[in-house]
Nucleic acid binder design. Structure first.
Lengths: 107, 107
DNA sequence: ACAACATATAACCGTTTGGTTATGAGTTAT
DNA sequence: ATAACTCATAACCAAACGGTTATATGTTGT
């Protein structure tokens, strides 16, 4: 249940890792070398982070010659989306009703 | 930008903490003592976790006599929702199209 | 076969984390 | 005033984490 979201949350909790993921989302498939540039950390660090993202199902890799290309794996965000919709259903309502209340009070 | 989501992700990354949050969502406002029962950890551990959730803006506390009542703070999930919708726009489309493709292939 | 290149893995290290027990602080009741 | 109760804080500890440098693995080109 909540176990599925576990690796996902853990993987995205680290800022460096989230930055890598976001970059892959924005820029599409990139090699490790490309990703290393733009980060303040070493190549091994990037590789380790990518490994964690990969085992969390958030990215996939593809070998092409001596380079390895990483890209976002869309379904990887599923556990997060599920969790959000599950435990977010009630608060979204409350938030919406709060907002409409504030708007009404503002008038 | 991504800094706002930082504390949120970090807070929800821990399973014990997420369990506490989920329980507050399901059951509504609870005291520390109530929350401690049902967890495998000690009361101080629960207090520490609640403190982290609180400083992440995910819960609030209210003193009533000697007990302290904790409850979910709806807006706390905002950074997560923002992050999801931001970096989720593109993958949701891709996921949807993938799913429809798979369905078509299945027929 | 060998050198250069791109990435992964190994070994290591300081810091952070999540837990514990012990104790402090605030509140209620006697 | 004091004892009991509820929770937070302090002090401490082992394990996990995120980083480093050094090296192994796999691929390309000569």
């Amino acid at each position: 249940m909540t176990g599925a979201a576990d690796a996902t949350f853990a993987a995205l909790a680290d800022p460096t890792r989230r930055a890598l993921f976001e970059r892959l989302v924005r820029d599409g498939e990139r090699t490790v070398g490309m990703l290393t540039k733009g980060t303040r950390v070493s190549q091994p660090a990037v590789s380790k982070h990518l490994g964690i993202l990969k085992s969390a199902g958030l990215v996939r890799d593809r070998r092409e010659g001596r380079q390895i290309h990483y890209s976002v794996r869309p379904q990887g965000l599923r556990p997060l989306a599920n969790w959000m919709s599950f435990y977010g259903a009630f608060w979204r309502d409350r938030l919406d009703s709060l907002e409409s209340l504030l708007k009404r009070m503002d008038q």
